[in-house]
Design a binder for these strands. Structure first.
Lengths: 349, 349
DNA sequence: CTGAAAGCGCTAACAC
DNA sequence: GTGTTAGCGCTTTCAG
């Protein structure tokens, strides 16, 4: 079998308690023995047994991530950030795909309440009251990524600012009738993006006429889906002559849907209508979509770092970290600082 | 604290041994006591403690997945399949992102050799000799996904057949000079795709002239990258008048690169040259790329099922399961059974 | 059939 | 400072 603290103890002619203390950097161990034990441990290639350690009450060097069971580029990138930082500190990642926050219950109980996991990451999900209650007076740190709740550490992106940037870009290009194709304003990001849009319009002395603002009422993914993008774009097109000349779309995914609708109606982008998205999913690059980019990898890495800090200071006030997104200019607005890359090499048969 | 077998033993006035036996469906327990204990357990909402169980020698209900630390659509889809099946049987997924099979060592030792994990999934990686040796006489089942080694269970896709289908499609469209833009033929999938291409050509009485076959020598991801696609396409273009009229590209990712090169040279697809890819990554759909699709979700789910079976029969011969891929016809070959979707609504600025 | 007891490897409280 | 001991919750002999 593998080597245990007993082996070390025997070899060092000390008790297992001493060994444990040394290995855990406890004080009150004489320098000579400490050195001796370390050296023996190294020679024997001792590795602590994580399961035993967890059972005995110590944490577990593993963190549970709840991610929406939805294969988006956003998550793979964020997760890479998480993994990267985690492997630096030699922790492991347990992944839980869920579709709805309600499904958190079982996993939660199974892992967290059973010393199995000593940290949690929750991605892009609204936390319900019950969850908040259970988690709050828990010793297990929880950090929210791309989500927010005053009681927990969180990492978000400055949606308002991003929306402001996007809208401002459109304004700078000379557009006056600028629309907003939003997700469900009941969701925080959607509301913030709405605010950013409005503020940019106001600051430019432009009026955000109500008919220029189309918002989803969908509950599925808060309306951040291709379908809502397609549908709301139809409403814009129905405006006929009053159609906006440019639209800020609240997410790239919706922009994809919008693009499909445009195509069905023989409308071209950016000639007939300019579009800016939000998120910068991988497809955006290929579609030439100008969009607002979130620093996904960094958000993931930071999530782990916040968690580490929290581990050392369970009682501090929650910290909320906000990233500022960047505008990535491509071709969907008719302006391009980058070399324009059009994708019209693929034509209808 | 949470309820343990002691609680239920006390309440049932039996020893903890009996409780454990009942809970583990051991024989030799009288029907009355069995029923009584079950009912009490339910009433008390007893949940086994996975960590304790693992320490005591039982497995751990968790499986370790090694995936290339590379955010492709392929993995998110396969992983969804894995997760889906895993949650059916109430197991958990531990994720390990690695860039190179050599990095498997530490994770391997840390988890597998310490009762921490009772199964492993290895994705799209070549297993090195050392790894094989360590794993082989191990009780922990290992299943290879999108990879192959005679000693282990594996799930692959019939690359040769896929390549055959793709090439055949091109032939059916009337093409005679059909090229192959391959990855590094040192990798198994690349070699198999080469075989499929050749066979289809042969069966059609066409000759696969050497100049029609361009293969990568890259070691990074075995040449399955955008870069090699772009480079090899340049070689094709250099053929001038002898350029093929259609090309089977060994992966969608490479096809993307090839498309970029085409564009740079003002060549259009499919007018000037038809392309078929392989994989059906999400982008393929948006690019209108005709391609060969692997049933990713199913592969993931099946991986878990194979693992379950192996758990029950450690000693059986390795089973190798092979999926047959489908051809997905889009617009990059000039034929389309689906409604053609062109993406030229986005134009150069 | 069933109870008692011995661990699994480690931590932490308690003596000396 | 350091050894000893009592668990953590569960599985598994070993006696009855």
């Amino acid at each position: 079998m593998s080597v245990t603290i007993y082996d070390i103890a025997k070899k060092a002619k000390v008790g297992i308690g001493t060994v444990s203390r040394v290995l855990n950097n406890h004080p009150n161990v004489s320098e000579p023995t400490r050195k001796r034990i370390f050296s023996i441990a190294r020679k024997l290639q001792y590795r602590p047994h994580p399961v035993a350690r967890a059972l005995a009450g110590k944490g577990s060097n593993s963190i549970l991530a709840f991610i929406p069971f939805f294969p988006t580029h956003f998550f793979s990138e964020v997760l890479q950030g998480v993994q990267s930082r985690l492997s630096d500190i030699d922790w492991e990642l347990i992944l839980y795909g869920v579709n709805h926050p309600d499904q958190l219950g079982t996993a939660f109980e199974r892992h967290v309440l059973r010393t199995h996991v000593s940290g949690m990451l929750l991605f892009s999900m609204k936390v319900n009251k019950e969850f908040v209650k259970t988690s709050r007076n828990l010793k297990t740190p929880l950090v929210l990524v791309d989500a927010f709740h005053p009681s927990f550490d969180s990492i978000t992106v400055d949606n308002k600012r991003g929306a402001y940037l996007a809208t401002q870009h459109l304004i700078a290009l000379g557009h006056k009738r600028i629309g907003l194709l939003n997700a469900n304003p009941q969701s925080v990001p959607a509301r913030e993006r709405l605010d950013g849009y409005k503020e940019a319009m106001r600051d430019a002395g432009l009026t955000a006429h109500p008919e220029l603002i189309k918002q989803s009422r969908s509950k599925v993914f808060d309306g951040f889906t291709r379908v809502t993008g397609a549908e709301l774009m139809k409403e814009f097109i129905a405006l006929k002559k009053n159609m906006p000349t440019a639209i800020f779309v609240a997410s790239d995914t919706q922009a994809l849907g919008a693009l499909e609708t445009l195509e069905e109606n023989q409308l071209r982008c950016p000639e007939d209508i300019a579009l800016v998205g939000f998120d910068d999913i991988e497809l955006a690059r290929y579609m030439g979509l100008t969009t607002v980019r979130q620093p996904m990898f960094m958000m993931g890495a930071l999530a782990v770092e916040m968690f580490e800090r929290r581990l050392k200071n369970l009682k501090g006030a929650p910290v909320h970290s906000q990233f500022t997104p960047d505008l990535v200019v491509r071709t969907s607005c008719g302006s391009s600082r980058e070399r324009a890359r059009s994708l019209d090499i693929l034509r209808r048969a």
